[in-house]
Amino acid sequence: MTEPAPSRADRLNAALSRAFAPTVLDIQDDSARHAGHAGAQPGGETHYSVLLVSAAFQGVSRVARSRAVHSAISAEFGTAEQGGLHALALTLRTPAEHAAETGK
């Protein structure tokens, strides 16, 4: 009996954990809120929000952080017809930035 393929959220979690050793990683599938919009697919898994807190971002610009994340998960992107990731909202912080933002 074969195990089901991991969800996109599981794959994102694995790739981002490997690449950034995050202290906080929260991945939300926002696909249901975008039903009927461009890039939305009936099965979902096309629109995500990610909060990633990692010491790896220390001294790294916001643009470079975003590029690094996109590079780490590049296998998830593709056309809507291929079921590719369509939208990704990123919040990328260092632990100090996260503590200042949340008080935690």
Rank of each mutant, 00 (worst) to 15 (best):
A100G: 02
A96G: 02
A100D: 14
A80L: 02
E76A: 07
A21L: 10
G83F: 01
A89E: 13
M1E: 10
A38H: 14
G103D: 05
E45Q: 12
Q41L: 15
S7C: 12
L16Q: 02
A64R: 08
S71C: 07
A99T: 10
Y48W: 13
I27Y: 00
L16A: 00
Q28L: 09
A64N: 11
D30C: 06
L12C: 09
T46Q: 04
L85Y: 00
A14V: 10
T23H: 09
L90F: 04
S7T: 15
V63F: 13
G43W: 10
S74P: 07
R62E: 11
D29G: 02
P6R: 09
A96C: 02
P95Q: 11
V69S: 01
E3G: 06
T94Y: 12
H98A: 11
A68T: 08
T46L: 01
L51S: 09
G59D: 11
S7Q: 13
P22G: 10
G44L: 00
D30Q: 11
V60R: 01
S71V: 09
R33M: 13
E76C: 03
L90H: 03
E76P: 08
Q41P: 03
S71N: 12
S54W: 00
Q82S: 15
A72P: 12
T91N: 12
A87G: 15
V63C: 08
A5T: 13
A9V: 13
E3N: 11
D26Y: 06
H47A: 07
